[in-house]
Design a protein around this nucleic acid. Sequence first.
RNA 1: GGAGAAUUGCUCGAGUGGCUUAAGAGGUACGCUUGGAAAGCGUAUGUACCCCAAAAGGGUACCGGGGGUUCGAAUCCCUCAUUCUCCGCCA
Length: 426
Amino acid sequence: MLQVSFIRENRQQIVEGLKKRVWSEDQMNILDQIIVLDDKRKEIQTEHDDILSKINTHSKTIGELFKSGKQGEANALKTTVTELKNMSAGLEENMKSTKSGLDELLFQVPNIPNQLVPSGNSDEDNEVFKDLVGDLPDLGAEAKPHWDLVNEYNMIDFALGVKITGAGFPLYMGKGARLQRALVQFFLDEAGDAGYLELNPPFIVNEASAIGTGNLPDKEGQMYHVTNDNFYLIPTAEVPVTNIHREEILAEGDLPKKYTAFSPCFRREAGSYGAHVKGLNRLHQFEKVEIVQMVHPSKSYEVLDEMLNHVEGILKKLELPYRILRLCGGDLSFASALTYDFEVYSGAQKRWLEVSSVSNFETFQSNRMKMRFKDGDGKKHLVHTLNGSALALPRIMASLIENNQSSDGIIIPEVLRKYTGFDIIN
RNA sequence: GGAGAAUUGCUCGAGUGGCUUAAGAGGUACGCUUGGAAAGCGUAUGUACCCCAAAAGGGUACCGGGGGUUCGAAUCCCUCAUUCUCCGCCA
């Protein structure tokens, strides 16, 4: 969420930014309401602190009066304090509702898009930042989509997943399961080599963590909620990992913090049915290796490029044709200032599949989480947080299976063979 | 799941209603001392918000979270979380 002080001082810049997110004039009014409520909050606090101060002084006096035996004076003063306390209670109530009103408004304001973000309403307006790297596979007319191939080679059983749980929970088997594990291992090794500390975080988080990363309150319906304990199944490892330093003040020398984590990801997003969500294209449970960084604000865009390079390196090693999109304002996630999506080409479906999303959140998450660092002068600043998928498994599997199909079977890319222990699935 | 004990600042740790402006120790920073270091001595050392044009200064809140009793709570009560010990169950 944005800081009120930032809203006060950069109104014009914010309005320009929100226009890219297709905000109406009506919605812009929220900005003014925020400032009005914040003014009110200050006014109430000044008044309230003043009363509390008087109560504190009087209480001390009462103690002294009792000690010196002046019961009458003490009791008179007690009455005064009681009156002050009534006033204080009223102000406190007012403060509470003002603050929650203010938060409610602040939660509605998304991050301000970076200058580079193109305006636009939907994914059709995304900018192709880097077009096709690699060659589109030439599979011929009899190319099969991955959902047929995984069936043919007994790699994944979707029907059993439905039996056990429901749609969107595939069961990987044999070489399918092994290939998946090989990819995870490969991704983690790549991240480790790039200096990310490997973590194995909790896959269920509490409410505070979900709020910290911006998954609550906005996207409650997208997460699985464990109501008995008020916990949430993570939609991505970004949630537990980014929350590691929630409400912390780091030393400037501690930055950057670089973390990587493998996790299953759970997403409710009760989807539509049809070809574009068929097979591995969209799931309720999938696996992903995530990279996360907490960095000095002056470095965050440099680091964003570094993360892009990291993801590109992996896709090149896997020999998958890919392209990079720069998301437009309308497609940008709520918390992000700039996002690049990676898409790989899936040869039989003949379409691009999103396999990674790399974002700079600037201070949007760190402000919610109160994640700061102290500079040499002892001044505190919010860190910038970034994260990216490196990578999400199912669509990598889908394109890898489709693109590498041959009359002999599915050819395993060279780089994975030491992890799989086999070079073909047939 | 049951019974008991605990949670205090950067760390350890004292603190059973006003004498706490949270003792004391350690750590850290700076200064003094020294040929240099150590020791010693001195000073400082949290977070958030508010007042003030700013600085200086002042105020409020914070002793695991939330609520309550009281003129006054780290201290008493309720509740939740976490940690430890024992019992039960368990991969």
